[in-house]
Computed example of a mutant assay.
Amino acid sequence: MARRKPQGKTKVDPEKTIKPWEEYLHKEQTKEQKNARRQYRAPLHVSKTLPQLKRTRLSRLVRNVVIVLAILLTIGGSAAYFLTPFSRVREISVTGTTIAADQAVIDQSGIRSGAGLFHVFLHRQDYTRHLLKQMPLLKKVAIKRTGINDIVLQVKEYPVVGYAVKAGIYHPILSTGTVVSGGQSKPVGNYPVYADFTKAAHLQAAVKVYASLAAHVQTDISEIHDIGDKDNPNRVMLYLNDGNKVIADLDSLKQKMVYYPAMKAQLKGPGIVDLEVGAYAVPNSTAKDTKKP
């Protein structure tokens, strides 16, 4: 029986075995070095940090001092201002008036010379509301400052459409139909005079009709008288600047005034043009005018 020959042992290369281990160790060392560099911080030297800390503290101190000084100066300046005459109203003026008297606007405003400017402008809405309530003639009021301590009252009036005569005093009538309580001894401007109107509603109706007329017709009318009766309470008589009179109904006055030039041409002198029902003209000598305004 033949015997087997023993197999030979495999040889191992030491370099191949050690090399992977060395590579592993090298990688681990590299990681440790990187981690050490990341975690490492150079200690700050006192000689470098102390000046920087001083500068920071100094800048904060300066900033706080500036803030405190600014507050104190503001308070002190404000207190000094309120003690000076510049904080008080020196003069009061009015602009925008055509009918209302400037002094009346100043008196009714409640603002007086010597009043505190700060108080006036703090309560300016109260002053304007009070003035508008006291003077219905005024539509808008604005309180402005001019110069250092002067006040100007900028007003806008309601349009005046005529005057109502009461006991010889001419009271302005506004476009709203309101009759101003204050008046003057004679009218101002080219506005008609409303006479003999005893009812406020009737006067307002006449004012509304007058406002609807053409501008050239309005300027031709000097007086409007109420001559209404039971048969026609809307009957009025117009006195024109050319010397003629026009009898008309308020409801149809605007439409029928277009016939006036033709009716006027029929007259050789002053007369009456009746537009109440039809349209005809008669001289004053033959007119039967039983109602003398």
Rank of each mutant, 00 (worst) to 15 (best):
D126K: 10
L73K: 00
Q39T: 07
S185P: 00
P233A: 06
A279V: 09
T198A: 15
K186Q: 14
R90K: 14
V207Q: 02
G77V: 02
A195K: 15
H26P: 00
Q7W: 04
S47W: 01
M237W: 07
E223F: 04
L132K: 15
I169T: 12
P172F: 05
Y170K: 08
H171W: 03
Q125E: 15
T49Y: 13
R124C: 00
L73N: 00
G269H: 11
R3P: 03
Q266V: 12
L240C: 13
L267N: 02
Q218R: 10
L240I: 06
P136M: 08
R57Y: 12
I106W: 10
L122E: 14
M1G: 09
T10G: 00
A167I: 00
P6K: 14
K292P: 01
K19F: 12
G162T: 11
S285G: 02
G114K: 14
L53A: 12
R88T: 05
H216M: 05
S185Q: 06
V65E: 09
L153Y: 08
G96L: 11
I148W: 11
E276Y: 06
T84Y: 00
D102Q: 07
A100K: 10
F118T: 13
K48A: 06
V193W: 03
A211H: 05
K292M: 04
L153G: 06
A200G: 04
A195Y: 06
N284G: 00
F197S: 10
H216K: 05
T290L: 14
I148G: 04
I106M: 06
P293G: 00
N241E: 11
T30V: 05
G168Y: 04
A2C: 03
R88C: 01
P85I: 00
E157R: 02
P14C: 08
S181G: 13
G8T: 12
Q266R: 14
K54N: 10
H216I: 03
T198N: 15
K11H: 08
N35M: 13
D242M: 02
V236K: 01
L131W: 10
L267T: 02
P159A: 14
P136I: 08
A79N: 07
I143Q: 02
T97M: 09
K16I: 13
V258I: 11
V89Q: 01
A200L: 05
I71D: 06
F197R: 12
Y259C: 01
P192T: 06
M263Y: 04
M257G: 03
A287T: 02
L58R: 13
P283E: 15
K5D: 15
N149A: 00
P283N: 10
S47A: 10
Y81L: 04
K11M: 13
N35W: 08
P261Y: 12
K144T: 11
P192D: 05
L131A: 08
K144L: 14
G77M: 10
P187Y: 12
F82E: 02
S181L: 08
S252A: 11
S59V: 09
K288G: 11
P187E: 14
